[in-house]
Design a protein around this nucleic acid. Structure first.
Lengths: 193, 193
DNA sequence: TAAGGCATGTAAGACGTTACATGATTAC
DNA sequence: GTAATCATGTAACGTCTTACATGCCTTA
């Protein structure tokens, strides 16, 4: 992806997500797009200005969005909306990125760490697992909260996304409980929170 | 993390993972480290030479690993092993990165896509979900396979990691089945594969 | 001794991050 | 009218990626 002429149809996850937001929510300013990512429960992107502003210009160069100069007071403002080409690109991204995706096994930082936990003395392994359990219980609460705030009738897809977050969090919590049980033979299995 | 002097104790996930591998498996050449990542089921890193070779030198600069010049035939070869400092750093990374981690909600590319699935006509939504189900069933097989190949007695932590992969994959599969049922009212729920 | 692949790298570049800069608007 | 915050950017940089380069070393 570097030395070569860049394939014009290739799209990063963030580019696609921005395109998706613009397409779904209608005309956006870079600022509203940023807000969207800043408020999103997923910590994948920072929503930093340094990412978003250049990105939307990139999208415009590729004619996936089009901007019109609005104005709020005297301040100039760009309103971006998705083009037909953009919709096509989004559509293609949604459908084509699945099959050959590397998404078969998603990343879990806790799993990465688990691989090297043998480096710790037993007591610290316990600390690790306990801490992780604490974090995960809070995450579960958050996920439940988020799910409540995105009811199915409002936007079924947002609802499904929130379900995904909940199910993944539950799975990780279950895993941690399992690990603790296997390591320390306690009988808390299934208690959860 | 850019404009500022870099915090010497900061460590990227890949750096820590490499450090972990060197610490766990004993003296490594960059080549064996690469193999490790190339063979790993987790697609998070490519294990590219361009990443690994500079990285181990970076670790050596920071005195987290130390290299000795071995030789296979006349070919010079660097053998890296972890230092005491390296063990300390690894230890700290394992314990400290949890609490303030952004790992509370892990990323799922399918979830990202789900958010924008409203852009597709209904028929294509079905296609999307079906394709994803196919991918996920294969991923489930793979995860089960991997789990079998890392039995608990051999390395309990590797075993736990494989369990994590399996549970996460199951959760995603369950989620997709749920989505399909909600969208299309079919009664396949619970059938799975 | 030539071919192929093993092993070790380097080169160029895309992407996203943090931190800084700056004018407009609002609140007091 | 001054301070805070909104909104829009730019600057510098680190990490990782793909593609290329290059010698060693085995095997036929």
């Amino acid at each position: 992806m570097a030395r070569q002429k860049k394939d014009k149809t290739a799209t990063t996850e963030l580019e696609a997500a921005v395109l998706g937001v613009v397409g779904r929510d209608g005309p956006c300013t870079p600022y509203t797009i940023r807000q969207h990512f800043l408020e999103s429960p997923s910590p994948r992107w920072s929503g930093s200005a340094g990412a978003i502003y250049p990105l939307v210009r990139r999208l415009e160069t590729r004619k996936l969005v089009r901007s019109t100069a609005g104005a709020r007071g005297r301040r100039s403002q760009r309103n971006y909306r998705i083009t037909r080409r953009g919709r096509t690109a989004l559509n293609r991204w949604l459908l084509s990125s699945i099959a050959q995706s590397n998404a078969t096994l998603i990343d879990d930082p806790l799993r990465t760490r688990m691989l090297f936990l043998g480096a710790l003395p037993r007591g610290q392994v316990l600390t690790f697992v306990s801490d992780a359990l604490g974090v995960m219980r809070r995450a579960l609460h958050q996920a439940q909260q988020d799910l409540k705030e995105s009811p199915a009738p409002k936007d079924p897809f947002a609802h499904f996304a929130a379900r995904n977050a909940l199910l993944l969090t539950r799975a990780r919590l279950k895993w941690l409980v399992e690990v603790r049980a296997a390591q320390f033979g306690d009988s808390d299995v299934g208690k959860g929170t």
